[in-house]
Every structure is written in structure tokens, then in C-alpha cells.
Design a protein around this nucleic acid. Structure first.
Length: 907
RNA sequence: GGGCCUGUAGCUCAGUGGGUAGAGCGCCGCGUUUACACCGCGGGUGUCGUCGGUUCGAGCCCGGCCAGGCCCACCA
């Protein structure tokens, strides 16, 4: 860490060693800020461009193979929320491991201009002064948004530094910067020329509050309570009477027809006739269309081509007129009735009342729950509305996006998510890309005085334009801007310099991994796939898509301001440290699944960091060394061999877990290895040889160093701060950020498992637990030393471990004339204790009874299986053998426990 | 309307070549054992939603049902 010199001299003899200056409690705030600044200053996050040498001197082993990730660009209006924290933790973990593995690693940061969201922010500021954007004017307004962006936008970037994101700040991009704007215009032109972008009058989703068209996925369907009412068209009492049902009464003002099913006998006589539209007085035709379901409602449908997608198509088929009866604000207009000027919902009431007055409402009027579209930005009820808009023809693009996954060129992780992918890309409608906003990429299409339509590329000018770009007289540019997702769909290649052929594009495209929440699979990932395949000659923009879930509150409920259960990652970083937040999120990150988090988890993660801190501190205080080769096996104790064997296994498992994006599983593995095996196991056992001194202590110090060295490396991708602070202290080297990944070094890869050592230490630990349990039952305090005699260790193969058993079980040597007052038998080992005072025979009996019951249960189960001829005949031999062994063990346990119970004095 | 997912210890969740049910937190008892009380030692904790099927054997495979959740959707 910054404030402490690397004071430990690992090779110094125990009695001369310098105590570490690490304090006894890890204080993240003292470490994180300075450390992050140092990482950036040293240029660790800037890739090597293939020169094979990391910028830092810290032992990087870059092979120069590129590895790249582009960040999902957060909204420029945004600040770091818990979902970002998860998303970034996963990406940083992936990236940091690759960097340690020696890849030429690029994690590219940036922000999205977030059309509607950002425009709303600045409009809200204007509203404080009672102004609208129209008062300001387009150019000045856009200028004002830019100023806002420079002044207040992008606070999330600072928050990313807090989190420890190892992004290359020198390559930061913005979806509206000059280069990306060029990319947008280039691909628009290309799609336009390929007739994959077109302008058409269609029914689109219109938000009357945002005053803009929306794409289908920007509409959220909710089940709202409405009313299905029947309206009587034609003559209320005459032969032309026809009853239609609707939930949107006000749209009847724009009706231009009535549709019935061609085979419906009820209406056969009316097909081809015209009936009167009430209130308006227009004569509208009755048409036959198979789309109508005779079973639903009255079997007759009012047709409003300008306000309903189905009706629009019916209208197209039958040549019906489209009459738009609403303003962009959603008020009735142009109907020539008294309803003009009414808001759509007021009109709904008013029209119904007027019809009722005329006796034109049918019998049936019932509450009706049905899906109603809402604007995903402002929740306003979306109005389907006929409108002239720009569209991307998605059929061929979506097909290619589907195929890329289908044929395995792009993997989706976890694979269960592929179903969603195909369901969507295989059924995609054309994408409405024009927005009636001012903040965004303006559509590069110009209209001439004589109906000319010209699409300009970034380097094109209109024929006859002035030298400064002033358009010729009579020409105007399309006033709309593009959907925000249009530019973010180019992100994996526009950020690398496309459409120019840059070195970055050549080297880092396609990107390696794309990490994001499953909630924006369609919004973003699908668009990147379509555009990437299209623009980059069929090369998909990434090799694998890693989808994570949503972060929820402690009870698995969605976080929301109204519920008051929102977790602020910044607050948690203040309280628990950035590493603790990251560790918590990684530990909950099961592939594709949502996770519930709570303060208790964060506190647990903080505790783990502290545990790691203190364990390493123990190592440093005891002269843990990373210098020189490991002592040869014949100089290692069995305890050393055990922990090194476990270390090798855990290293391989952790490496494989990271490789497969199993962050929850991998962090859990490391957590338990560090806490249970290293701290509770090896550290406690190491205290003996360290106290002994000499050769045993020297070997132990080297092994301790080895264990911490590797463990810190393995954890560094997830908890970079505390591990780097400890590792530099331990090794005296510059930084863990550019240290080698264990499994990438031959020294660590594929080290063999030392099964005998693992078995021996396992037996030792079981025996110690047994004695401790006995002691606890007898009411002895855990730390209290008790005289004891141990016999029978030889037969268990633990002959050499009496000292360890004594140390861990707090048994002192039996004095002369020792008499035991309590006896514990475990397997062949007998431990006799001198308990001053009477032993608790009741507790002892209860313990033995419980164990006996368990042993008998065990024996009964095994006997039942082995007594089943079917089992013996059909089960595999190894399973049968295992059950036989189990029976033998259970049998001897039963005998042993019975003997022990019988030998208990009658209390 | 279509599709998908989940239901395992008090809570949140792991647990796919079917072969003795796990973790964290919480809980109970004991405790200054010179790395750590953000700790140590010991301990209990479950008709694996429900009914049935396949199998020598099912938390895991198959089917029905019940209960939650999600996504998609142009039936007025």
C-alpha cells in the first residue's frame, strides 16, 4: 500500500524479521484511491498493441494476443447503480484475468447520449424557467444539451474509478462524438442505398407526452382495466343496424369501415353495403375480412386504419381511407365534431355519453382487463398512430443475427438464453428508427423543392451547396433524429475507428466477450449483431455474449424508489469497500440468474477481505517468503504437501470456473479455500514448525509465501485492491495487476494431487475435531489446556502427529502419576483426559447416543440396499463396493459406540 | 393468446454422467487460543411445492396439479 514501505525481508531469520507495518484492520479507503491512481499512471490499462511487453515492469508475460471488451455505454445522464456495479464487476474480473494471462487486453469505456432521457433532463431545467425547447429553438437547445453534458454528464465515469474498472481511459468514446457520428451517417447511407432503410406511413407507437415515435420494444405492455363497450352503428332499429365492440371508443371518430367475417351468417346481408357512422354521419362500408374472429365480441369490428395496426391492414386490403383524428398531444382534432380539442381520455367518456344519449350503446358493457402499451420512458399510455417515419427493414439482418448464433459463431452464455434470442430475432418487425426529438443523430436525408430525396454520407454535400455547406435554396434536412439504439448498435466497431480501417479495428474487432444484463438482449445485443454482421462483412461483433441477471433486494424483490429498497453501490463502497461490493456481486452472479443482495452479504464480504488481510499479515509477521524455488518435496512436511496439493487443485478449479464465467461458484470456492483450509487449517498447523525454528520454519515460511502468492493472484480479478496491496507487501514487486496468472505459468499448471498427504491431514483434522467436540461436551473452555494421554496413533497413520493433535486440541503432556477421568475413543485412537472435577456423564451419554443412532441408521440403510437382490444385480460394481465399505464402517462405529457407552460409569 | 423460468434449512440461494442433502447469513453453547471478536471452537437445523410414473435406487428423468415470477404478443 502507498503509505507503507515494503519492510518485510522474507529471507531474514525469524528472530531478525521486521514486523510488517500493516495495521490489524483493513481500511479500504486508505488503499483504494491511491492504488487506482497508480494503476492508471503506470498505464496498466492501456493495451500493448502487440509489442509483447506490459507497460508496467511487474512481470507481465504478454504474448500480444488481443482480448477486447467494449463496455455497455451507460447513459450520460446516469450514475452508478447496483446493476452497473454487477455488470462492471463481471467485466473487470474477465479483463483482469486475461491481462494477467498475458493477453493484449483492451476494455473500452464510453457513454451513450441517451436521446430521450437526456433531452428530458434539459427540458426539465428549462421548465423551471417556464420555458420549453421550442422557446429556445433547435440549435440553441442542442447547444445547451452539450453544455449540460460537459458540466454535469458523466459523473458515472468517476464512480467507475471507485469501483476499480480497469478500462483504457485513453480510448474513451461517446456515441455523439465526431467519429461515431461519422459511423452513424456512413451506415445509414449504406443501408439506405441497399434499401434496408425506408420511409413509410405506418402505424407506430406514439408517446403523446414525449411527442415522439417509439420502437416496439420501447413499449411496455401492462394489463390495464378498461371497458369493452358495444356501439350500435347504422340504423339503431333498422336493417342496417350493426353492433361493434371496442375499448377505445374515441377512435370511432376516425372509423372508415366495419369488418365482419366472410362466413358469418349474421352479417352476410350487410357485406358490401354502407352504414352510417354515428355522431360523424359518414357512410362507411361493411367489408368481409378473415382477420375478424366471429366468436369475439359481437363478431363485427369497427375499422380505424389511422389508429390501430390491425385496422390499418384491413384498411389496406379493402381500400379504406385513413383518417387521423388526434394531434401529437393526443387530443381529438379534425373530426368536425364537438369533440375536437378534447383529450383522448376525456373524449372517450364524452363520445360514449353522446352515443348513449342517442340510444346507440349496446347491452354489453363490461370491465375488461387487457394489455395496454405504455411508454418505457414516462409510462404514458402509448397511442397507435398513423405516421410518416423511417424504418430499418430487419428481415435479412435479423436472419443473419439468428444464424450467427445458430451456427455457433457466437455463443450465448448461459445457453438457456438462446431460446429468447431466437424467439425474438426470428419474429422481428421492422424497426422504427426516427424520433421527433432534437438531441441525437439527425437523419442525413435532405428534401428538395421538387420532391427530391437525397441521403448524404459523411463526406457528401448537396449539389449546389455553398462552400461552407449551406444548402441550396429550397432544400431542407429531415428534422428527426435517430433512435439512441441505432448508434449504440454500432458500438463494437464505431469505437474502434470504423468506417476507417484503423489499427485498433484490425486488432480488436471482433471483440472477445460482450457482458450485459439479459434485459437489454433485444434492445442492444440484437442491434449490435445485425449492424456488426452487416457492416463488418459478416463478422459478428463478439465471440460470446455473457448474460447476467438483475440485482434485487434481500427478498428477491425488484428495487424501486417507491419501494424504498434501492441499494446505492456508492454508499456500500463507503461502508464496506469497493472490493467487498465486488465480491458480494460476484458471489451472487449465477449465470443468467437474478440475485438478491443484502447488507449482511456485503458485511460478510468485507469480513472476508479483512480475513485475507490478517492471514497475509500473519504470514508477513512470520517471515513468509516468495524467494527462490519451493523446497523439494522430501524436505516438505506432510502438512506442506497437503496445502500445496490443495492449492494446485483449487488453482485449476478456479481457473476453469473463471473461464466458464462461473463467478458465483469460483468466488465461493476461493472463499472456502482461504477461510477453511488456509486460515483454519494450514495457518494453525504452521505455528508449530514456525515456533520450532530452523529447517522446519524455513520450509514453512517458503510454503506460506507460496500459498499467499497464488491465492492473491487468483482473487485479484474479483477484489483487485486488497489483493494488490497485500501482494506488493508480500513480494516487494510493483503490482499484481500485471503479474502472471497462476495457471498460465508452468510452475502452477497441472501440479499433481498428493493424495496420501491429503488423506493424512484429513484424518488428523477429523481426530482433532473429535477431541474438541468431546471437550466442548465436557464443558471445557476452548482455550483451556488439559493434561491428556494419547495412544494408538500408529495404527491410524498419525504417529508423527501427536504434537499437532496436542496443539490443536489444547492437550498438555501427562504429568507423572497421571490418571485419566475421561476417555475418548475414536477409531484406534484413545485420548485420556484428566478432567479436574467430575465429568459430565449425561452430556457424554447424550453425545454417544446420538452418534450411535446415526451409525445404526447408516448401517440399516446399507443393509437394506445390500439385502436387495435387484440392487446387487443391477447397480454398478463400484457403487456396490462403496455401500459395502459404508456398511463395514457403520458396523464398527456401532460396536465402538456401544462399548464406549457400556464403559461409562453409571451416573 | 404464445413461450420460458422458479418452487431445496428461518432468509437468500448452490446442488445434470440419478448412488448417504450443501453454503452464507441468522440461531444455540463456550471463549482474550499473541493474524483476525469484521474472530475462534463446538452444535442443531430439511415429509428437496404436490400427486403419479420410469428405475435396484429420483432433489436430479417423464407426466398431471398447485403456487410464484418473467418475456413476447396487432384479437377489437
Amino acid at each position: 500500500m502507498a503509505t507503507t514501505p515494503s519492510g518485510t525481508s522474507p529471507s531474514a531469520p525469524a528472530d531478525e524479521r521486521t514486523a510488517t507495518t500493516l495495521p490489524s484492520v483493513y481500511v479500504p479507503a486508505d488503499v483504494e484511491g491511491p492504488l487506482y491512481r497508480r494503476w492508471v499512471e503506470r498505464g496498466y490499462f492501456t493495451p500493448d498493441q502487440g509489442d509483447g511487453d506490459n507497460d508496467g515492469a511487474g512481470g507481465g508475460t504478454a504474448t500480444g494476443e488481443p482480448f477486447s471488451i467494449v463496455i455497455p455505454p451507460p447513459n450520460v445522464t446516469g450514475s452508478l447503480h447496483i446493476g452497473h456495479a454487477l455488470d462492471h464487476t463481471i467485466q473487470d474480473t474477465i479483463v483482469r484475468r486475461r491481462r494477467m494471462q498475458g493477453y493484449d487486453t483492451l476494455w473500452l469505456p464510453g457513454m451513450d447520449h441517451a436521446g430521450i432521457a437526456t433531452q428530458n433532463v434539459v427540458e426539465r431545467e428549462l421548465r423551471k424557467d417556464g420555458r420549453t425547447r421550442h422557446d429556445v429553438g433547435r440549435e440553441a437547445f442542442v447547444q445547451q444539451v452539450w453544455e449540460w453534458k460537459e458540466a454535469s454528464g458523466g459523473q458515472i465515469l468517476g464512480q467507475m474509478r471507485r469501483l476499480g474498472d480497469s478500462v483504457d481511459w485513453s480510448r474513451e468514446r461517446f456515441t455523439m462524438d465526431e467519429g461515431l457520428s461519422r459511423a452513424v451517417q456512413t451506415i445509414f447511407k449504406r443501408l439506405f442505398d441497399d434499401e434496408l432503410i425506408y420511409r413509410a406511413e405506418r402505424i407506430i407507437n406514439w408517446c403523446p407526452r414525449c411527442h415522439t415515435a417509439l420502437s416496439d420494444i420501447e413499449v411496455e405492455h401492462q394489463d390495464d382495466d378498461g371497458e369493452l363497450v358495444e356501439l350500435i352503428y347504422g340504423e339503431p332499429d333498422g336493417p342496417s343496424r350493426i353492433v361493434v365492440a371496442t375499448t377505445r371508443v374515441e377512435t370511432m371518430l376516425g372509423d372508415t369501415g366495419i369488418a365482419v367475417h366472410p362466413d358469418d351468417p349474421r352479417y352476410a346481408h350487410l357485406i358490401g353495403t354502407e352504414v352510417e357512422l354515428p355522431l360523424v354521419g359518414r357512410r362507411i362500408p361493411v367489408v368481409a375480412d378473415t382477420h375478424v374472429d366471429p366468436e369475439f365480441g359481437t363478431g363485427a369490428v369497427k375499422v380505424t386504419p389511422a389508429h390501430d395496426p390491425n385496422d390499418f391492414e384491413i384498411g389496406q386490403r379493402h381500400g379504406l381511407a385513413s383518417i387521423n383524428v388526434m394531434t401529437p398531444e393526443g387530443t381529438i382534432t379534425g373530426t368536425g365534431t364537438a369533440f375536437d380539442g378534447l383529450d383522448r381520455f376525456a373524449a372517450r367518456e364524452a363520445v360514449l355519453a353522446a352515443l348513449r344519449e342517442q340510444g346507440r350503446t349496446g347491452a354489453e358493457k363490461r370491465p375488461y382487463s387487457h394489455a395496454v402499451g405504455h411508454c418505457s420512458r414516462c409510462d404514458t399510455v402509448v397511442e397507435p398512430r398513423l405516421s410518416l417515419q423511417w424504418f430499418v427493414a430487419t428481415r435479412t439482418l435479423a436472419e443473419a443475427a439468428g444464424d450467427a448464433v445458430r451456427d455457433g459463431r457466437v455463443r450465448i452464455h448461459p445457453t438457456e438464453m438462446e431460446g429468447r434470442w431466437f424467439a425474438w430475432v426470428d419474429n422481428m418487425h421492422d424497426w422504427c428508427i426516427s424520433r421527433q426529438l432534437w438531441w441525437g443523430h439527425r437523419i442525413p436525408v435532405w428534401y428538395g423543392p421538387d420532391g427530391e430525396v437525397v441521403c448524404l454520407g459523411p463526406d457528401d454535400t448537396l449539389p449546389g451547396a455553398g462552400p461552407d455547406g449551406t444548402p441550396p435554396a429550397g432544400w431542407t434536412q429531415d428534422s428527426d433524429v435517430l433512435d439512441t439504439w441505432f448508434s449504440s448498435g454500432l458500438w463494437p466497431f464505431s469505437t474502434l475507428g470504423w468506417p476507417d480501417s484503423t489499427a485498433d479495428l484490425e486488432r480488436y474487432y471482433p471483440t472477445s466477450v460482450l457482458v450485459t444484463g439479459y434485459d437489454i438482449l433485444f434492445f442492444w445485443v440484437a442491434r449490435m449483431m445485425m449492424f456488426g454482421l452487416y457492416a463488418m462483412d459478416g463478422v459478428p461483433p463478439f465471440d460470446v455474449v455473457v448474460l447476467h441477471g438483475l440485482v434485487r433486494d434481500r427478498h428477491g424483490k425488484k428495487m424501486s424508489k417507491s419501494r424504498g429498497n434501492v441499494v446505492d453501490p456508492l454508499e456500500w463502497m463507503d461502508r464496506f469497500g469497493a472490493d467487498a461490493l465486488r465480491f458480494t456481486l460476484a458471489r451472487g452472479a449465477n449465470p443468467g440468474a437474478d440475485q438478491a443482495i443484502s447488507e449482511e452479504w456485503a458485511a460478510g464480504s468485507r469480513n472476508f477481505c479483512t480475513k485475507l488481510w490478517n492471514a497475509t499479515r500473519f504470514g508477513l509477521l512470520n517471515g513468509a517468503s516468495v524467494n527462490g524455488p519451493l523446497p523439494p518435496v522430501d524436505r516438505q512436511s506432510v502438512v506442506d504437501r497437503w496445502i500445496l496439493s490443495r492449492l494446485a487443485t483449487v488453482t485449476a478449479q478456479a481457473d476453469a470456473g473463471y473461464e466458464d464465467f462461473q463467478f458465483a461458484k469460483t468466488t465461493d470456492l476461493l472463499y472456502h479455500f482461504v477461510w477453511d483450509e488456509v486460515c483454519d487449517g494450514y495457518l494453525e498447523l504452521s505455528k508449530l514448525p514456525l515456533a520450532t525454528g530452523g529447517e522446519p520454519a524455513a520450509v514453512t515460511r517458503r510454503v506460506l509465501g507460496e500459498v499467499f502468492d497464488v491465492v492473491l493472484r487468483l482473487l485479484h480479478p474479483v477484489i483487485p485492491f486488497v489483493t494488490d496491496a497485500l501482494w506488493t507487501e508480500l513480494t516487494g514487486q510493483e503490482s499484481l495487476v500485471v503479474a502472471a496468472w497462476p495457471e498460465a505459468e508452468p510452475k502452477y499448471a497441472g501440479r499433481p494431487v498428493d493424495a496420501p498427504a491429503e488423506d493424512e491431514v484429513g484424518a488428523l483434522q477429523r481426530l482433532v475435531t473429535e477431541v474438541r467436540r468431546f471437550r466442548a461436551d465436557q464443558g471445557l473452555k476452548p482455550g483451556q489446556r488439559v493434561a491428556g494421554r494419547i495412544t494408538g496413533l500408529d495404527a491410524t497413520g498419525l504417529a508423527a502427529h501427536e504434537d499437532e493433535v496436542r496443539a490443536l486440541a489444547r492437550l498438555s503432556a501427562p504429568p507423572a502419576g497421571f490418571t485419566a477421568s475421561a476417555t475418548l475413543t475414536s477409531g484406534t485412537v484413545t485420548v485420556e483426559l484428566d478432567l479436574s472435577g467430575a465429568i459430565d456423564l449425561g452430556a457424554e451419554r447424550r453425545r454417544l447416543d446420538k452418534d450411535l443412532a446415526a451409525a445404526i441408521r447408516e448401517r440399516t440403510q446399507a443393509q437394506a440396499k445390500l439385502g436387495n437382490p435387484q440392487f446387487l444385480a443391477k447397480a454398478p460394481a463400484d457403487v456396490v463396493d462403496k455401500i459395502r465399505d459404508r456398511l463395514a464402517v457403520a458396523e464398527s462405529e456401532v460396536q465402538r459406540l456401544r462399548a464406549a457407552l457400556e464403559s461409562l460409569p453409571v451416573g
